[in-house]
Design a binder for these strands. Structure first.
Lengths: 286, 286
DNA sequence: GTAGGTATGGAATTTTTATTCCATGGCGAC
DNA sequence: GTCGCCATGGAATAAAAATTCCATACCTAC
């Protein structure tokens, strides 16, 4: 039996170090414990076991395998951690907010970014017209294939959206311009498809060209952009305008990604409903 | 029986208001509870009774007299207080839930996502150790070229980081595995370079392989991942652990991107300082 | 394929903890 | 001074929770 850890940090280090040597269930337990330390501090063995997807026995075994006499003994570390660390949490916020004296600039920056992005997310939902959101979903739902386009900074959002569509089993292609083949990739867009275009100032020329072509061919198009005056907005069937945070003249992508995430999952929900109409009717009646 | 308080603040107010009307022992209990809320959150009735200088019965009676079914029910308020950093958190959720009665599902989803991502951003800065952040920046600053690696979901973060590095004039390459050439791209990593690896559960094999190779070759490595138990964490020189929001079993990327943004810009700030040392010295003297 | 060992789940058991109940003691009213 | 009520303490009881133990499933090695 090993020497037992004296505080949470020590325990965390031990768990991390020996993680590979643990059995499947104990690994599962380890992940849960380190991911949800707050919950562990309060809840009972039975509840935690349930949440972690293991049996109570496993939790006990886990504690034993790290030298504790029982689960309760290990739980103590989770509790004292909460008590020890909380008091200086509030202080840390205050310290960072007020003076940069002690904290490194980088941490100060992190707080600023987090705050700026939070503010943006706060404003986002009320800035998006529910009606536009529904129309965008209509277009995407009816499309056989969704082609996603975004260059430079917008490429991040575009690639995420394409990724997310794959995960809800919606056919999607990312127009990435690989090999300078923007034009060629646009030719692969069929008449029953739709496009989702992401573009922010200063609106990449290749994106504008592609969007113009799509408009001409009558391809349904949803645009995520940063202003209703954007050249992309006038080409779109539905345009969703997001305002991103700016710190040190660097723009974020938080709001756009949140919106992309929402579009993808809302689309997934719709598809589920469409493929299981019986379930929905039953609910409506009941 | 009175309406029972919903949170700690409410309870505190009630106790304060009715303090004068309580019996001697109950007053004694009240004082102890409000003076040692942390202790109350964890300890057992017997221990608390002992510490407060009253009998267990008194504690129960105290709880009952404020409308609780038992002491445990009251204790819950002391516990949630410790966990909830934000007192009006619960209210906010309720407000969103109720206010969206009329709106379509998609807008409802948008609110939920925005909310979840906001919460994540709130927790992010305090979860990142300033020391780790500085060390990560040290590694990146000293590197001649930064190679950025991330597959599937993490690719979004990786591509954003590579993009951001270009904008602060830091040489960067994105290891994208194009044409199945992960291995070949790794060969291009030089001895004076560094790597930034992004990987989330279920940790893409190609990323793990590449990271293992980098480790073997002694390439400095910063990892952004989702758990200290991640297989990537043990390979890294510095690992930054982020917790992402999850809605409808879909994980976000907000926190990771915010962190990537911070790293890039903090690095940019450092580079500026390094290239204008006179400015810095002047500040130190002044 | 089989035997041995290990990991796991679940029920039984023990321990801990919360709550109830009643006997006693203090305090004020008559 | 005595009666009655309310507060109080402490033991008894009930409830909940932790832990143990055993049967079984699952691997691994031969």
């Amino acid at each position: 039996m090993n020497q037992l850890p004296q505080d949470f940090a020590e325990l965390e280090a031990r768990i991390t170090a020996e993680y590979g040597a643990l059995s499947r269930r104990l690994q599962q337990t380890a992940r849960f414990l380190l991911d949800n330390p707050q919950e562990v501090a309060f809840a009972t063995v039975a509840k935690l076991a349930d949440r972690a997807g293991v049996t109570p026995s496993t939790l006990i075994r886990f504690a034993n395998s790290f030298g504790f006499k029982g689960f309760s003994e290990m739980q103590q570390l989770f509790r004292t951690r909460l008590v020890d660390e909380l008091p200086n949490y509030a202080e840390r916020i205050r310290a960072v907010r007020t003076a940069t004296g002690e904290t490194p600039d980088s941490t100060q920056l992190l707080w600023e970014f987090a705050e700026a992005n939070r503010d943006v997310l706060e404003a986002l939902p009320s800035r998006i017209d529910p009606h536009d959101l529904e129309r965008a979903l209509d277009l995407l739902e009816q499309a056989e294939i969704v082609h996603v386009l975004g260059a430079r900074r917008s490429f991040v959002v575009a690639s995420y959206f394409a990724y997310a569509l794959h995960h809800i089993d919606k056919r999607a292609f990312l127009i990435d311009g690989l090999g300078g083949m923007h034009g060629e990739q646009m030719k692969a867009v069929g008449p029953r498809d739709a496009m989702l275009v992401v573009s922010f100032s200063p609106y990449a020329q290749e994106t504008q060209d592609a969007a113009a072509e799509a408009k001409e061919r009558g391809i349904p198009m949803v645009v995520i952009t940063d202003s209703s005056l954007s050249p992309l907005a006038r080409l779109a069937d539905v345009s969703l305008v997001v305002h991103e945070a700016e710190v040190k003249s660097f723009r974020g992508l938080t709001a756009s990604l949140c919106l992309a995430q929402t579009l993808a999952i809302a689309l997934g929900v719709r598809q589920d409903k469409a493929s299981e109409p019986a379930h929905d009717e039953a609910k409506a009646k009941g």
